[in-house]
Amino acid sequence: MVSEARKLHIIEEILKLNSESTLATIENFLKKEKKEDRKVTKTKSAFREFSGIWSKEEAAEIENIIEESCETINPDDWK
């Protein structure tokens, strides 16, 4: 509820404004924030689509494969 009260207070303050430039600045800020929110939402939803699809066994298997193949240093590779 606190955030709802804050929103109402901001709306009240905006209604009192007489400056076109201040209103334009607020509008531009809100447009920019909407664009940022869309980017974050797309990123989150794309990740959430795959979150939790592996069982614990499958995740452990993948982790082992990564450890064996990616964390092994072959000294001949540096030559």
Rank of each mutant, 00 (worst) to 15 (best):
47 F>G: 08
25 T>G: 10
3 S>R: 10
17 L>M: 09
29 F>H: 03
75 P>H: 06
61 E>I: 05
50 F>W: 12
64 N>Q: 12
55 S>Q: 03
10 I>L: 13
15 L>K: 15
61 E>P: 00
40 V>H: 03
44 K>P: 01
79 K>H: 02
7 K>R: 10
58 E>L: 04
1 M>T: 09
52 G>Q: 03
14 I>D: 08
53 I>K: 13
31 K>D: 15
12 E>H: 14
21 S>C: 05
48 R>D: 04
72 T>N: 13
30 L>T: 07
68 E>C: 04
79 K>N: 03
38 R>V: 01
72 T>W: 11
79 K>I: 03
62 I>M: 12
13 E>D: 11
44 K>Q: 02
16 K>P: 00
75 P>M: 08
73 I>Q: 12
79 K>V: 03
41 T>L: 12
52 G>C: 03
40 V>P: 00
59 A>M: 10
73 I>S: 11
3 S>I: 05
17 L>G: 03
43 T>H: 08
1 M>L: 10
52 G>A: 02
66 I>N: 03
53 I>R: 11
49 E>C: 04
31 K>W: 14
75 P>L: 12
48 R>I: 01
12 E>Y: 13
27 E>T: 02
62 I>P: 08
18 N>I: 08
60 A>Y: 09
61 E>M: 05
40 V>F: 04
54 W>H: 10
31 K>N: 15
65 I>V: 07
58 E>P: 00
4 E>G: 01
11 I>W: 08
2 V>L: 12
73 I>F: 13
34 K>V: 13
28 N>Y: 11
2 V>N: 11
58 E>N: 01
53 I>Q: 09
47 F>C: 07
76 D>G: 15
6 R>F: 07
46 A>K: 14
64 N>P: 02
38 R>C: 02
50 F>I: 07
22 T>F: 03
57 E>R: 07
23 L>N: 03
40 V>W: 08
12 E>V: 10
74 N>E: 12
3 S>V: 08
4 E>V: 05
3 S>T: 09
54 W>T: 05
63 E>G: 01
42 K>M: 09
55 S>M: 03
31 K>P: 07
79 K>Q: 05
27 E>G: 00
32 K>A: 07
55 S>D: 06
24 A>L: 10
26 I>H: 01
9 H>M: 04
65 I>C: 05
76 D>P: 10
4 E>F: 06
69 S>Y: 14
28 N>Q: 14
49 E>I: 10
74 N>L: 04
61 E>W: 04
44 K>F: 08
77 D>H: 08
28 N>G: 06
15 L>N: 15
57 E>T: 11
26 I>Q: 01
34 K>E: 15
58 E>H: 00
56 K>R: 06
34 K>C: 09
15 L>Y: 10
15 L>F: 08
15 L>T: 10
71 E>Y: 00
36 E>L: 12
74 N>V: 06
19 S>A: 02
22 T>C: 06
5 A>P: 00
49 E>G: 01
62 I>D: 11
7 K>P: 00
17 L>T: 07
39 K>H: 02
23 L>A: 04
7 K>Y: 01
71 E>L: 02
34 K>H: 11
48 R>V: 02
37 D>L: 15
26 I>R: 03
